[in-house]
Design a protein around this nucleic acid. Structure first.
Lengths: 235, 235
DNA sequence: GAGCCGACCTGCTGA
DNA sequence: CTCAGCAGGTCGGCT
């Protein structure tokens, strides 16, 4: 399937004109998916170097919840943690859903981006294996052309797309889609406590939210204040 | 291993003679073991319906220690808890030992019973996979006619089962096999606090309280003295 | 270091 | 078809 998502991304879809989303995002890194990344292990290994650079865990073994917006502004939350056993950083819970809904296969490439001004906003996208053009550059590239990053198939209806990232009004400067929530807890699903890391004040309105739709359990969003822990904006 | 428990069950081991155990026990439920139940996961999933009916946790997420007597009056203690993540009730600690010592395999069936008068006394038993009655053969070891089984309310062979256990000695009520101890605790092994649930005194009176344990979750059946939920004797 | 145990996660599947 | 249940997995802490 995969209706050639080519240019869904292109400007004409965002006539209202907000700044071109691409201008607001800066790529962090991308990773070609391995068979394991799309298989039944339900996890994505984040190369250590990039993980430590962009998603530092700060020694917190608990694991975090990280939320990313995709091209349609859909929010995807993943559990992010470090596995001592394999000495690697991984996205676990939520990842398999992303793979499935986007029908990702080994070889496809996922891209992680963040907002240029608000680095707490994270974005995720992907492109098919044979990546057209831009693929060349490790990532930096995009700029000029739209590429076929990630818009996948799944939606034939474009109407909405408009609402896509571009539009997400982040009126107050802080939306926290793309925020990380600390999941205390050894382990797991039932977060013992949740702390906001990025968002300044959580409550604002961003309902892009982090509320895990999946297991309702984790609900209680204990929001902590400004404990921000921004990652080091490099660039 | 497996000291051929042959006839431990048989009469000469318990000459003292007590009333036929079968008369004193009533079955609660049984479960055919799945490969996971006897595998390395070291846990037995208790079907939710039965778990909530017979072993209500009363919203206590801590977990309990539950003790059961087997046919030889041996006491087996298991940790009993609810896993939020899978929304299921499980026996964990202690279970693997039971499986191992009894050489249980997938397909074998475990039976949970309790004392008719003292519902705090719990019993556990099992029978071989295809074993309707005397399982002697398949099961090798044991001597004449005992079967390790308790009675199955599912199968209509009650009549004969009776004969069998004729002597399980439950030497006295002193054992508290069958008690539940609350394990505070979040998890990890160390019981934070312990409370008795079915006190020794509780025993004699089990009110038949068929009250629907609505989703056991919310209710706090806990710590109630005698408020046990008996099951409806359906003999 | 190995194994046990506690907790969590998810796909399948049947109601 | 949705949803709950559960079988089958994982990791990590502790012993």
């Amino acid at each position: 399937m995969e209706p050639t998502q080519s240019s869904l991304w292109s400007s004409h879809f965002y006539p209202e004109k907000t700044p071109n989303p691409d201008d607001e995002r800066e790529p962090m890194f991308e990773k070609p998916l391995t068979p394991s990344d799309v298989g039944k292990l339900n996890r994505l290994v984040i190369p250590k170097q990039q993980a430590e650079k962009y998603f530092p865990l700060g020694g917190d073994s608990g694991g975090l919840l990280m939320s990313f917006e995709d091209e349609w502004s859909k929010c995807w939350s993943f559990r992010y943690s470090y596995w001592n056993s394999s000495q690697s950083y991984v996205l676990t819970k939520g990842w398999s859903r992303y793979v499935k809904e986007n029908k990702l296969d080994a070889g496809d490439i996922v891209l992680f981006q963040r907002h240029r001004l608000d680095c707490s906003r994270l974005f995720i996208g992907w492109r098919r294996r044979g990546a057209p053009e831009v693929a060349a550059t490790e990532y930096g590239g995009k700029a000029g052309g739209d590429e076929r990053w990630g818009l996948s198939h799944v939606h034939p209806y474009l109407g909405h797309i408009q609402g896509l990232g571009a539009n997400v009004p982040y009126q107050s400067d802080r939306l926290h889609a793309g925020s990380m929530i600390q999941n205390g807890g050894g382990g797991g699903g039932k977060p013992k406590r949740l702390l906001r890391l990025f968002g300044v004040d959580v409550d604002v309105e961003c309902h892009l939210d982090v509320s895990e739709p999946s297991t309702s359990e984790s609900s209680s969003v204990l929001s902590r204040g400004p404990t921000t822990h921004l990652f080091y904006s490099q660039s």
